[in-house]
Simulated scan of single mutants.
Amino acid sequence: MNDLMAGVYEAFRLLWSFDSNLVEISLRSLQVSFSAVILSAALGLPFGAWLAVSRFRYRRLAIALLNALMGLPPVVVGLVVYLLLSRSGPLGVLNLLFSPTAMIIAQVIIVTPIIASLTHQSLRELWFQYHDLLISLHTTKLQRMKALLWDGRRALLTATLTGFGRAIGEIGAIMIVGGNIDHLTRVLTTAIALEVGKGDFPLALGLGIILILLAVLVNISIHVLSRTEREGTW
């Protein structure tokens, strides 16, 4: 209980003092997570929509594989990206290891299947409703995908926010490929792990509270800006 109260106090102290190190770490956390989610959404949303409107021989296998990829172990993803970006790896010439870019790549691999799978599940229901109409209008597959993506935008926002929650709380993969380097790749999750290792539980708990507040604030802001609550009452 004492550690909990000390953690709450430490969180408010850091926020009140506008600690420069905390601001830097928080902004880097948001930068990495937002970048990863934007890229993942750009890949996952169209793929999920395509999977919803397409019919091919191994479709069920593809859906099962996509759902399985939602549970990718982050440390395995981190290891694979590390081997690819290391000096002896095929992409070592790019010199991306232990950089925010490497962290973004790892998060994209983790988050994209989540967004794609949730998109497919949401748009599959819409496709059942609109199938006859869109077929009768002789629409192309791309037009069908666009129609489903637009009409299902509220559900897709939820899928994207789910991906963001997964990204901002990630530690295993980004610890491996980022290295938790101060002023370069240290984010809130890796900073928490560092403080726990040092035995500074109040500071670790304070950083954890700030991480939760950031995630909640971002989710609320996106919901307000997109006016999903207002649209839901129409």
Rank of each mutant, 00 (worst) to 15 (best):
F34H: 02
L66I: 07
L69K: 06
T139A: 13
H138V: 15
R57F: 11
S136P: 05
A106R: 10
H131K: 14
A106P: 07
I115F: 02
H120S: 01
A102K: 11
A36I: 04
T119G: 01
Y58M: 12
I115P: 01
T119R: 03
T112C: 08
Q121L: 14
Y82S: 02
I104K: 07
T140K: 10
G71W: 14
K141I: 14
M145C: 15
F56A: 11
I63M: 12
S54Q: 13
N95L: 06
P90G: 10
N95F: 01
V75T: 14
L148D: 09
G165L: 14
G163F: 02
A116Q: 04
A52N: 04
S99Q: 09
L161H: 07
L96G: 05
R154L: 15
L148V: 12
A62M: 12
L137W: 05
L51C: 02
E24F: 09
G78D: 04
D151I: 10
N95G: 05
H138S: 15
A49S: 12
G71R: 08
S35E: 04
S86G: 08
V23G: 01
R28N: 07
L118S: 11
I115T: 06
E24S: 12
I114S: 10
P100F: 10
A49I: 10
L148Y: 08
V37E: 06
L97I: 14
R57G: 04
F34P: 00
V111P: 00
G44R: 05
I115D: 05
P100N: 06
L123N: 06
L142G: 04
L65Q: 03
P74Q: 11
S117L: 09
S88P: 00
I115A: 06
V93A: 15
I25Y: 01
S88A: 13
L69R: 01
Y82R: 00
S117F: 06
W127S: 11
A49E: 09
R144P: 06
S26G: 08
P113K: 09
I105N: 06
R154P: 00
Q143M: 11
R144D: 13
L69C: 13
S54N: 04
S117W: 06
Q129W: 12
H120K: 00
A147K: 11
I25H: 00
L69P: 02
F56R: 10
G44K: 09
T112A: 14
P74L: 14
T101S: 12
S99Y: 02
V37C: 05
L156I: 13
L61A: 12
W127G: 04
T162E: 06
L133R: 05
A155Y: 07
L161W: 08
G89L: 09
A147G: 03
E125D: 12
A116M: 09
S136V: 12
A64Q: 13
I110R: 09
G48V: 03
G44P: 07
F164V: 07
Y130L: 15
P46W: 10
E24M: 09
S20M: 13
P90K: 14
V23A: 15
R154G: 03
T160V: 15
L97D: 00
L91F: 15
A42N: 01
L118W: 03
V32Q: 08
F56M: 08
I104T: 15
Y82D: 04
I109N: 07
S33M: 04
N67W: 02
K146D: 04
V81G: 10
G152C: 11
P90F: 14
G78L: 05
P74G: 10
V81E: 04
L157A: 05
L133N: 03
